[in-house]
Design a protein around this nucleic acid. Sequence first.
RNA 1: CGGGGUGUGGCUCAGCCCGGUUAGAGCGCCUGGUUCGGGACCAGGAGGCCGGAGGUUCGAAUCCUCUCACCCCGACCA
Length: 562
Amino acid sequence: MRLSKFFVPTLKEIPNDAVVKSHILMLRSGMIKMISAGIYAFLPLGYRVIRKISEIIREEMNAIGGQEFHLPALNPKEIWEETNRVEAFGDTLFHVKNRDYVLAPTHEEIITYLARNVVKSYKDMPQIWYQIQTKFRNEPRPRSGVIRGRQFLMKDAYSLDSSWEGLDTAYDLHDKAYRKIFDRCGLKYFVVGASSGAMGGTGSEEFMVRSEAGEDTVAYCEHCGYAANVEVAVSNVSETGREQKSEDVKEISTPGVKSIDELCSFLKIKEDQCAKSRVYISEGKPVLVLMLGNEEVNETKLGKALGGNVRPAHPEELKELTGADAGSIGPIGFNGKIIADNRLTDANNLYSGANKNDFHLAGIDLKRDVKNITYSDLRNVQPGEKCIKCGNSLEVFSAIELGHIFKLGTKYSDSMNAKFLDENGKEQPIIMGSYGIGVERVMACYIEQHNDESGLVWDKTLAPFHVHLIGLNMKKDEIVQTCDKLYIEMNKKGIEVLYDDRVDAQAGFKFKDADLLGIPLQVIVGDKKLKENKVEVKIRKTGERFDVRIGELITRVEDELK
RNA sequence: CGGGGUGUGGCUCAGCCCGGUUAGAGCGCCUGGUUCGGGACCAGGAGGCCGGAGGUUCGAAUCCUCUCACCCCGACCA
């Protein structure tokens, strides 16, 4: 491709609206352009990368027996009503105004619709059906460029099986295929076991990439690979323990003291002598939650421990339930269920609120003074805590979800009545799995991991081109002739070449553009080297340069690209 | 949906507080010339109803009201 005829609007300056690295670089390198919040046009250069990623995905999906479909984005609303997901998706689902259609945010319904009354026998399975297509979600807040958009390219696969063992097999196949896909793409990723959320189902794994731009926070053990969302990651910190002698409970006047910090400095005590109280409402009933010191309540864990959803009590409710405002609430005299974090197990000589404004209690012994207290893991894992699997130190950081595989089971086949006859002639619901990859996220994550101060740094696999051929002064015939010749030869050899044949751009300008685009090899044709019948090769990743005789260039380029 | 911020030529921004020539700069773009291995130089030029609507005023990019768009934090997120 000749750059003079190729639409690559590179930007020297950082676009105002972009914040994360990948977004900035995709815009600056002329790969995408924003049309509206969360809606991007892929320009020719960017689309080449998308196609390379898609092709890798396609190869690995085909390798596990996947069959590629092309499914409609416009779906009749009534199909979605069968599974009750019009309501479940709520405002996230795009509705078409002038007909009863929705824009598909995912394709379980369509797949189940296709299978129903067609996949009728256990002999018709297993099946793996997939698509690489645009999906639509009315995200309340698109962000980070292509990472969270309102329309995005997704590979979604669905497995159909006649047995749970078959589902396990399909799930394992996808797990392995995903690892191959992300390995081939050159991504550093990790795998998190996760709850399957609104998709329903039993087992699930998320494929994640560490990134500042990530929306999930995970705890990760470099040593053994343990990884879990902090919402569920088990905390592994020792209990604060009991002191030998239990003091008597004693009321202390603490005027104006609200926070644990204030309490500690007012009484000159340490944080871990305090029990922080938070009141939640669970199933309509108040629950007092005690945390050691100033630790935050993990509401997901709390919900799990109490079996249901929880919400913090409103200020008015606090006053009504305890007689005090936030900051003066405590376990003694609290009328309702009391649950404490494991770290407080049987602790004594604690300070906490007195359920009376401007007073706290000292000498609280949870074992002696608080009957019916239960203990549970309610805190967030902190960096440096011991991994529950191997005991090494955990890291906590944010990450982007690239892919998600889960066992759906019969949720959709049940609600849409997709049944088959088993070996015994008995009717059974089809057992399904669902497996997604955010194609644009793969690209963004790759860029997050492969860039430097000059721009992008592609490996050959995903690079939009293999070689960036730069004619330095295209007003000189020898240079043009040499470049043209090399361009034709490389094309003939199947080497993908971007040829900077622009006449009006100066050398420095071309170099900066080339570094920004980050194509792995640069072949530089200039006056100086040409006199010795040589051209210069620069390896983008290392910055290394060397001269090569023109006659040997093709072989050398082929070697470098191996 | 809550909080914060920004809308001025294709891009990055100044001007706004304190209203008053013809609305500016750098980059980019067009013409001609010089340059030609790390985002060149000279000369000339095109391009803006200052996000939109209403209002205050003799006069509004600037003040007021409403509205739209976009960004960030939070809520939400298969």
